[in-house]
Design a protein around this nucleic acid. Sequence first.
DNA 1: ATTATCTATAGATCTATAGATAATGC
DNA 2: ATTATCTATAGATCTATAGATAATGC
Lengths: 224, 224
Amino acid sequence: MSNSSKPKRLSVKAEQRAETRELILDEAERLFAVHGFLGVTLKDVARQAGVHHTLMNYYFEDKQKLLDEVFARRAVVTSSRRMDAMAAYEAEAGDAVTVEGALRAFLDVDLDLYAAGGEGWHSFGSLVALVANTPVWGSGLMTEHFDPVVRRLIGLLRKALPDATEEDIYWGYHFVSGALLLSLARTGRIDRLSDGLCVSDDFASIKARMATFMAAGIIEICKG
Amino acid sequence: MSNSSKPKRLSVKAEQRAETRELILDEAERLFAVHGFLGVTLKDVARQAGVHHTLMNYYFEDKQKLLDEVFARRAVVTSSRRMDAMAAYEAEAGDAVTVEGALRAFLDVDLDLYAAGGEGWHSFGSLVALVANTPVWGSGLMTEHFDPVVRRLIGLLRKALPDATEEDIYWGYHFVSGALLLSLARTGRIDRLSDGLCVSDDFASIKARMATFMAAGIIEICKG
DNA sequence: ATTATCTATAGATCTATAGATAATGC
DNA sequence: ATTATCTATAGATCTATAGATAATGC
């Protein structure tokens, strides 16, 4: 238990273990994102990762636990960044919190992460959309990882719109959430509909419009 | 080939056939909506429908074709209603087409259908969301059944916003689409987040806010 | 001595079809 | 005679584990 000043030098075995686990997580993430949880077998993941298929159960308790780890790996990163961004915004804005400011803190750091994060983050985005749309086995993951950031956003919106009803604010968030999830899914549908003018992977274009769009919508329905 | 004045009286066999097919389609729809296409086996569907599992391949070529029929059954209904609603709106509005008017024609008849359609339509809604979020096997169905209504909407929005760029209009539609899909999915997430204040199944509350919200958003991003 | 990897296999499905039997059709 | 339903089964997976072997650890 020499925990003070941990030896940074990992043993060969510990390194090998960590590398293999990451490799499996990467391939699982990629495959789950494209084919869905049930559209991928542990053997598929093992084949792609180049490891023996029995190692799947050596490194991960079962298939569900593998998904849980894939999901948690990036969910904690985006959640903590968004919490920080919202806290920073609130500190900076004081009593002058605006709907668009709150939404930018909630949306923009997240979209930046997906824009700059490469293939891994892209896959994770698609996976979040799939998980969110399969409540029967996905709602636990959504609740566990994303409820805190949503509640934080709701708090900021309340501050920005002290006269709005709770229902209007929640329905407003619901629309934001749907638009964000479809963006993360990168289905390629907008590409085909617009004949290539818009591109699903273009998170910069989405970021440029999303907070503005959603702020206008929320303010409008909260007028009622 | 006595096609003139078809005998409305169907034979017992023809009736039986039609009933069994519908029964299978109903149960497949319900199960696919909850568990996803791959989360349901043909045996599951047969068991729920109370028919022998080998009848699945007697009535439907294969599992994919069963999904295609489940999907097409209601997709043609909603699509034709929405096309009619948009045509009626355009005829009525003439050159004074508005963004909110166009969106009401696109959204409201659809939401009415889900609100009043009972369990079958509810299941279909969840299924649409799942199909839309699984591009690898779902984009064909989306394109085939929903491209025409989307193109019709885009045409109306162009008329309402002659100075807007094509990109802004398509991205605006993209946000609308995401919000609609999450509403159809009825994930129950907004219920839990709002502690029961908002209810996923409450299409009336969604309809009351959605076109207003989306019109404000589209108009705002098209100002740029 | 401990941990990573592979061999072999249990046990449980699934989809799909060939072919037999039972129920209407004309 | 035609069509609906059931019997029986081929053929192909999958997940998960017990136990053996190979590679580091100290």
